[in-house]
Amino acid sequence: MKAAVITFPGSNCDRDCLRALEEIPGCEADSVWHADQDLAGYDLIVLPGGFSYGDYLRSGAIARFSPVMAALKREADRGVTILGICNGFQVLLEAGLLPGAMRRNQSLKFVCKPCELVVDRADSRFSSRFQEGQTLQVPVAHGEGNYYCDDETLKRLHGEGQVVFRYADNPNGSVADIAGITNETGNVLGMMPHPERATRARLGSVDGAEIFGAIFDFVSAGGKS
């Protein structure tokens, strides 16, 4: 599997994502600067967490206009697997690649802690190593992770099976406890929790590694889940 991790000015989980990917045997991961315009040839593109452009104006609002984003859109349309984590999720929302928007956490405070996630769909390319209803341990760390969408969109998300991960104990006020959603075609996932922080037992959980692992399985199987 060939993976790209995009670094925007202000990204700060890019190295962590590269490391998580490099720990998968058979996975090759490149760091891609946001000014690059070519993403051809990658099986997975990761938008990492952090504070792109300082989260000024709104989280992800400025990064979505980075030169690399046009290429990202092209690859998304081609069905390439795209994973947006935390700030990466926010960028995907701002770019319209996923529906909805982020608000400040209901507590108005940044929250960093281990979080229990419930797997809502085990048939996505991101969650195929889990059972439906299984509980995962993946940490969150964000100030604006309070997912919002209108009722109609929410109905559609549920109807189309786009909600992949839910919070067992909602840390931020997200509608319907949503922690991670895909687009309609299922190749783009945005999630607030950080799978790259749950890749070694010493960090408290290996469930995050299984998310990267599921993507690896999907790609290794020729891209068909």
Binding site: N12, C13, R15, D16, R19, A20, G49, K109, F110, V111, C112, K113, P139, A141, H194, E196, R197, T199, L203
Partner: peptide
């Protein structure tokens, strides 16, 4: 400390 990102860098 839950208001501080204490896990970044992994």
């Amino acid at each position: 400390y839950e208001q501080f990102d204490h896990m970044v860098q992994g």
